[in-house]
Structure formats: structure tokens, C-alpha cells
Design a protein around this nucleic acid. Sequence first.
DNA 1: CCTTGCGCTGAACACGTGTTTAGTATTTTG
DNA 2: CAAAATACTAAACACGTGTTCAGCGCAAGG
Lengths: 214, 214
Amino acid sequence: MSSATDGRDLTARATIRNAALRLFAHRGHDTVTVREIAAAAGVSPALVLHHFGSKDGLRAAVDAHAAESLDTIFAELGGEELAGMLARGEATTSVAESFVQVFPPGSPLPAYLRRLLLTNDPAGAALFARWYATTRGVLEAMVENGIAAPTGDPAVRAAFLLVNDLAVILLREQITTAIGDDPLTPAGLTRWTKDVTAVYTGGAFADPGKEPPP
Amino acid sequence: MSSATDGRDLTARATIRNAALRLFAHRGHDTVTVREIAAAAGVSPALVLHHFGSKDGLRAAVDAHAAESLDTIFAELGGEELAGMLARGEATTSVAESFVQVFPPGSPLPAYLRRLLLTNDPAGAALFARWYATTRGVLEAMVENGIAAPTGDPAVRAAFLLVNDLAVILLREQITTAIGDDPLTPAGLTRWTKDVTAVYTGGAFADPGKEPPP
DNA sequence: CCTTGCGCTGAACACGTGTTTAGTATTTTG
DNA sequence: CAAAATACTAAACACGTGTTCAGCGCAAGG
């Protein structure tokens, strides 16, 4: 019915859904009003309810649509081709890298992902659970291939790496003002990845039995 | 006027502020109503406005109070004693560790920090800016003392480490269901820290010129 | 004493919200 | 072509919201 990236689907229903996605992403579900969504979509407020039943129905539809789009990122990362890529050293990218490659610059999906993960609704929880399972699988494969170092606590390691990656999306704006580059643009991403890769491959601290920094 | 942990301050004004903090933290500023706050504090709705002028005034007061409490964590981490601790190898703890040590188990402050960082209001931005400056300073000192490895991009490295730490608070619930332990409890924290320290000191991946995992 | 100020309340007000209803174009269908 | 379903709208409704207002009880101070 609708592709992941939603090429040109100018039916009113899709227009409303897209407008709601953008508004929800940037301002939150509760502060956005049905009248605002209707105005942004160029339709009457009543039509919004006519198509989605209620505001909650619209929210559910937007959640489902966003989750579907976001899952395409992990679909290819967790696919069959992955093992081969790992073996060849082509390596999989991070979630942030996938975002830059897959979605256009002004896409509201990063911001919407933020909202999905923060408001602990089922949609966000399910998304995280799927991605976590994928991450664990990939890490296990990498350990078997000798690309990743084994660990005594694979659950924590997978969560740590996934969560670090998501932090780039969750704190995108703060990172941008801190380092002067948006990490979700090609320029900022390469700069970010360079230093992150250094830490992930060689570490950052001396081992004298002591801890990470503040 | 009020200590970080706010011992026993049973004036009605403080009671209202604490009730609002707890409700705001768990449900968001917009979904919580003045009448709910009043009920939770055991007062009339009108008294809330009498003390804080408006709901936005209350929100500002709660923001200021929370920021003050949260800053105590970084105050000691960035203090003068830090350099000595670093030299002695006692090392500073992470933000998550400080949370566990400083705040009681049921404290709403982690959840409120989440809200502060997500809604891009000035309060959250200022908080992040201060913490980022502290992190950069600490890292610089650690590099000078040979505890941390130097990097060509200190801005990115500091942001990376700070953001990873904050991710534990932002995604606390998802991490809890993923690994089966709340990382903001002593038990979960030690488990978390163990593997994280391993990555930060020795890395997790082979260096063949390739990237982090998904 | 009383009277001034303060903490505090119940009831009301103005307004924006999600939603409904009745009705009109427009397209689809038999 | 006629009829039924669908896309869509304007106007209104019921309700919850933040906020205001007039007044109560009570301690402080002259």
C-alpha cells in the first residue's frame, strides 16, 4: 500500500498522515491539535476524524507507518547478506549512518524515533526490542568471525552499543551545538564515526582497574 | 534554601513543587493538569496558581529546582579534588553511577532529566552545555595525566562519552527489559559498568579499518 | 482590641479541545 | 443513467483546561 520511503502518495489520507508525522515528531503528540494537522494538510478538521476515527487512531496509524519505515533500516542490516559482508570486512554501518543514507535531510523520522523511544508506548518498545535482537545476533556473528572481541556479558555489550548509537539520534541537537556539526549529516557523521571507531577498536582509557569518565 | 535531596521541607509551596516534579517527570509537562498536581499535593487548584502565578511559572520553578539538584552531581565531579583523584587512580564515576549514589531509588529526577533533555527548552540545553564543558575539562586533565589516550577531535570524544552516559538514563526502561537489570540500581550498575569499562579500556572490535556494529 | 496581611478555598469564567452531526459535492457501481 | 457509496465540509456540541474572583480563617503587629 505504501512503500517505506513513501514516494508520491498524494491521497488525502496519506497527506494527513505525513503532516501529522511531521508535527508529532517536532512538537509531541499531546501539544499538536487536530486543527493544526488539518491546516498543515490543507483539509478540514472533520476529515481527519473521518479517515482515522479519532486522534488516537491517527496516532496509531502514524506510529505504525513510522515503525515500518524505521524497520527498513534494520531489515537490511540484519539480512542474509550481512554475514558475507562481515566476512569480507565491508562491515555494517551504525544506525546513525543508515539514517543519513536512507532518509532525506529534512526527514522527520529521527525526531519521531525520539518520541517513540521516550514515551514508553508499545510501538517504541517493540521497535527497540526488534533492534536489540538484531544487534545481539550481529554481534554474535562478529565474535564468531573474530571481528569482535568476546565478552562475558553479551546482553550488556549489545545494549551498550545499540544505546550509544541511538543516543546520537536522541541527543542530536545537543551534539550539534556541542561539536558544531550535525551528526546526522554526511559531514558530521564522518567526523563522529572517526573518533567513535577509534574508541571501539582501541579503547580510550588506561586499564589501571579504573572507570570511565563523567 | 533547599538541599539537593530536599530533606523535609513541608511548606505547601515545596509540597506542590515536589508533586509537580514527580508528575511532570513521569507523564510530561503537557499531559499533567493543575488539578492533578493540586490533588497530589493535597491542596486546592487555586493555591497552585496563588504560589506560582501560572502553570508555566510552576514549570519554571520545577525546572530550576531540578537543574539545581542535578548539577550537584557534576559539581563534585568537576571539583578541585578531581585532579588528585585522577592522579591517584581513584577515578571519577559516570553520571549514571552518581545518580545511584546520590539519589534515592524512587527519585523522579532521572525521568525528569529525560524530559529536560528532550524538550529543547533552555533549561535542558543549559544543563547539557554545563555538563559538556565539565566533561571536556576532565578528559583534558586525564589526557595530560596519561590516563586517557589523546585524540585528534576532543570535542567529538567528549560528546561521545557524555552522550553514552546519558543514554543509560534516557533509555533506562528499554535497557532494563533488554538485560534484565535496571542500570540505575547498584546491582545493574556494576554489571553495566563492568562491560562498558572493558570496551572503553580495550575496545571491542578488530581494527581492519572498519566500523562499529549496528 | 482590631485590622492588616497571608495562606487558602469553592465557584465560576473564558476558551480551546476532540468529537459529532447534518448536509453537499463527487466518484463508483449496478 | 440512476443510485448508492464515498470524500469532504461547516457548524455546532460537550467537556476539560488554565485562570480569576470574592471571600474565609487565622496569625502578626500596632
